[in-house]
């Protein structure tokens, strides 16, 4: 019964007063989730912020509260700035490229009827294949002497490159792997967005005289993809900030800190040097960046939704 139209009246079932045993059942059923959340999620978030204000080192007998010293130390640490800068640079390469490739491939797939599932699957394989294993395959393809990429360059008359050993090339090279891995995911999101654009809008655009492919894109596709695009941008950015696997396996942050990224710094501080307080400070910075990106998305989403 659709009685919602009249304001008095039927609250949704869950909002209604129920016999007491239902409230008890609700608490009992969510108790395990609440306990585990407190232990493994919310508690640790508090702990990481708290720890960032201490000089705690794993295994140390004592520790003390040192206020914002960890943060001021980070602020004066060139390696930290390098790490933050590298992370931003990595994101600045991966986000636009994986956005553009994801959208381009989605448009191409959607432009025809044949082999859609086939292409979709092809571009999606890197998303779910174990990145560590694929990084090893990439490493061999990038091998200075016997790698497929240098051999190709040589056969085309170009000079071979030391992709991962050259400080200028190492980060962009990792970014290419990141793009390769990520854009299939964006493609799937764009495909879903494209499918949900109502056909009659294209018919209306055609009646209005916008019948060229570019005109249709500008008038209908792009605006209607607005929310999806925003979403893809933020998701890609958050994922780029989480880059770690390829760095850890292929470069260890080198050469000469050229691929030192935020999570790698945190890992090294926390689990190689066991300076838990410093690691917690980096983790807090990381957390703040990720949460800020999400807030940005939420605010933008309010403004840019074109669905009714």
């Amino acid at each position: 019964m659709s009685e919602a139209a009249i304001p008095l009246r039927r609250a949704p079932a869950a909002a209604r007063r129920r016999p007491r045993h239902v409230a008890l059942a609700g608490l009992a059923l969510s108790a395990p989730a609440i306990a585990l959340m407190a232990l493994f999620l919310i508690g640790p978030v508090g702990a990481v912020i708290g720890m960032s204000l201490t000089d705690y080192q794993l295994g140390a007998r004592s520790w003390s509260f040192i206020g914002l010293d960890n943060y001021s130390a980070l602020a004066g640490d060139a390696v930290f700035w390098k790490s933050l800068g590298n992370t931003l640079l990595y994101a600045a390469i991966v986000v636009p490229a994986s956005f553009a490739l994801g959208l381009g491939v989605a448009l191409l797939i959607e432009a025809g009827r044949s082999f859609r599932a086939f292409y979709r699957a092809v571009f999606f394989v890197p998303v779910m294949a174990t990145l560590i294993a694929m990084a090893i395959s990439w490493e061999f393809m990038l091998h200075a002497q016997f790698g497929l990429i240098n051999l190709t360059l040589i056969s085309l008359g170009f000079a071979p490159q030391a992709w991962l050993a050259n400080p200028d090339l190492a980060l962009p090279t990792l970014a290419v792997i990141g793009i390769w891995q990520a854009f299939g995911f964006n493609m799937v999101l764009f495909l879903a967005g494209l499918v949900s654009i109502p056909r009659p809008l294209y018919d209306a655009a055609a009646m209005d005289g916008a019948d060229g492919a570019f005109e249709r894109f500008r008038l209908v596709t792009w605006p209607m993809l607005g929310p999806v695009s925003m979403f893809v941008l933020v998701i890609s950015a958050i994922r780029s900030f989480q880059v770690f696997d390829t760095v850890h396996v292929l470069t260890k942050g080198g050469p000469s800190k050229a691929t030192e990224v935020l999570l790698y710094s945190m890992y090294a501080e926390g689990f190689e040097f066991f300076r838990s307080g410093v690691a917690a400070a980096i983790a807090t910075v990381f957390l703040v960046i990720v949460l800020a990106l999400t807030l940005l998305k939420a605010r933008a989403a309010d403004r840019r939704v074109h669905y009714s």
């Binding site: 659709s2 009685e3 139209a5 009246r9 039927r10 129920r18 016999p19």
Partner: peptide, 20 residues
């Protein structure tokens, strides 16, 4: 009519809601 409380009354008879 919609919203007159008839469904709520039925649910109270059923025991799915409790009356005040």
């Amino acid at each position: 009519p919609s919203g007159c409380g008839k469904s709520t009354l039925l649910r109270i008879v059923a025991g799915l809601d409790s009356q005040d």
